[in-house]
């Protein structure tokens, strides 16, 4: 279970986002909808431990992650959180397989990759360089990298944002199927994907503060 308690985050441009207290139950899927800049991506980065809140607590499975060091949060992220970034965050000059194998640096077992590639129809592309792939294929590689470690929590930031609707829908379907039984939190502004989720959250109602001046995605705060 993921709990947010009185969490707020300030940015360099003095804008701030305050989140309402939230709870994400284990094994449920959540779709976070909202306008650009309402703090959706920031929320994912906070849960992933990539950034720290200025106030409040983030508690994951009873553990107050906000009290932990960056090192501990990194270790937790690589073991327990599968994060699918909006812009994939893949090393373009490396092969698809290398982008998965990179997790082995931290001792992550990537033996499930073959099955996931097969499930997503990517087994033929494993030795191709990422830069040779289409947007949809890159998104699938990002999904495999997020799921290969069999995480308890999957965070997906606009997983269909770079894809046309039909491919996006297919990717979303595949993601929802492969993530079944996990806690899946997906951020998007595309309401048409709502049918794939147990819960739909309007983030415009869950945040307050200088929302409209807040950075729109994680890249700007990293």
């Amino acid at each position: 279970m993921i709990q947010l308690h009185q969490v707020s985050k300030h940015f360099h441009n003095e804008t701030a986002i305050r989140y309402s207290d939230m709870v994400f139950e284990d094994g449920h899927s959540y779709l976070l909808l909202g306008a650009s800049g309402c703090g959706k991506s920031t929320l994912l980065n906070l849960i992933a431990g990539i950034i720290s809140p200025d106030t409040g607590e983030i508690i994951i499975n009873g553990r107050v992650m906000t009290n932990e060091s960056q090192q501990v949060r990194d270790a937790f992220r690589i073991r327990s959180i599968g994060y699918i970034f909006q812009d994939f965050k893949l090393i373009e000059d490396m092969t698809v397989q290398d982008n998965i194998d990179i997790l082995r640096l931290e001792g992550v077992d990537v033996s499930h990759a073959a099955g996931l590639f097969a499930a997503l129809g990517m087994q033929e592309k494993r030795n191709k360089k990422v830069r040779q792939l289409s947007g949809g294929e890159k998104q699938r590689v990002a999904i495999v990298r997020a799921l290969v470690k069999q995480p308890d929590i999957i965070l997906a930031d606009e997983p269909t944002g770079n894809l046309n609707f039909s491919i996006g829908e297919q990717v979303m379907r595949e993601l929802a199927e492969t993530a079944r039984g996990k806690t899946l939190i997906t951020v998007t502004h595309d309401e048409r994907l709502a049918s794939y989720f147990d819960h739909v959250v309007d983030m415009n109602e869950m945040t307050s503060g200088g929302l409209f001046d807040a950075p729109s995605d994680s890249r700007e705060v990293m």
């Binding site: 990194d74 270790a75 073991r79 970034f85 965050k89 090393i91 640096l105 931290e106 990293m222």
Partner: peptide
């Protein structure tokens, strides 16, 4: 590339 590795959880030590 380093930032990317940090994002997916690779420690700075590694």
């Amino acid at each position: 590339e380093i930032r990317l590795m940090r994002l997916i959880g690779i420690s700075m030590r590694k």
